[in-house]
Design a protein around this nucleic acid. Sequence first.
DNA 1: AGGCCCATGTAATCTGTTACATGATTCC
DNA 2: GGAATCATGTAACAGATTACATGGGCCT
Lengths: 194, 194
Amino acid sequence: MTLRHAILATLLDGEASGYELSKWFDPEVPYFWHCAAQQLYAELTRLEDAGLTAGREVVQERRPNKRVYTLTEAGHAELTRFVATDTKQSFIRDDLLVKMYTAEAGEAEVLLEQLEKRAVELRARIAWFDDLLARLRGGRSEQEFLADGERIGRYLAAVRGRSFECDNLAWCTWAEQVLRARELGDPPPALPAP
Amino acid sequence: MTLRHAILATLLDGEASGYELSKWFDPEVPYFWHCAAQQLYAELTRLEDAGLTAGREVVQERRPNKRVYTLTEAGHAELTRFVATDTKQSFIRDDLLVKMYTAEAGEAEVLLEQLEKRAVELRARIAWFDDLLARLRGGRSEQEFLADGERIGRYLAAVRGRSFECDNLAWCTWAEQVLRARELGDPPPALPAP
DNA sequence: AGGCCCATGTAATCTGTTACATGATTCC
DNA sequence: GGAATCATGTAACAGATTACATGGGCCT
């Protein structure tokens, strides 16, 4: 159950409401973890019941009231304990890979469309990460920030996210070229970087 | 429900038993999809009931009997239909990323251990993929194989898998260096490739 | 008037994981 | 004698997804 710990980790950056967290965990805007809003709200209730977070009602005027959460001592302790546990493997789980697996000579059109569509999404996500990284650096150069910037883990996680999207994009464009070359009987493209 | 389609896609390579498939889907040996053996056997039963695969009992002498499955026409049609559907986004879901998120100056030791352990695993998985890719090429060079090799999708999927592990490893070693440099007050390492 | 943002849920269902079970054979 | 391989499951539970619900404020 890592959603629990992903929420606790996010609260290291300060108090947040369920709605704010739901933006960071939105599957469309993928940072380092994602889930549907419903799951998040359910988990927040459980975390507060378990004493790992403390909730506080904030009354608003032209907006619905909201509940903001902060980490408790017990929450910090639970995070520390979690970090020291054995880590599961990382997996890809990507529908597009299953679709690619079916590729065979002559039926490439639909797959090429899928690859192009994916590439467009990936470019948007890379841009989103670039933007996020710039905001986290807050004006400093990357060298400066890496040397002594605050909340370095948050930054490193974002770099990983960006890297994943870039790697994915490089593969998509390469695979597209391989399939196109085969359709045309051209020589295959050079390999992507190691 | 993509496990269903991952199984159908794997059966494009010819008939296979549940046990054989469970090797390809083993979470320890991650190719393009993974699941526990129990889930696989359950799904195979459902696929046969749905008429997407045809099962055949194979009686063996010094081994337990087994059931081998082949794709039916309906199974092929279902795969084709699936390939044309909208594709979901690809996500990372990695406990280590959540752990990294908590990194802050002074508490890096545990994280460094985790990163090193992960790096060891990743190197083993890259070697596994190198081996698989060589077997799929069957003696041909990559250029030759990409030009007109059989079951190209299977190969492209394996390249993606390898690429993911490599990218992950590059980030792990880089993040390790960043954290170490901060511990020592040294200048941070150069950035990983774009 | 229609749609999006804020803010938080319930309910049902589907998917995935963990624990446990069986039993012969082959390898060290 | 003990572990690994072959071969396939059942049962219980945890986690994730999908559908649906509410209601005021703000923007065009």
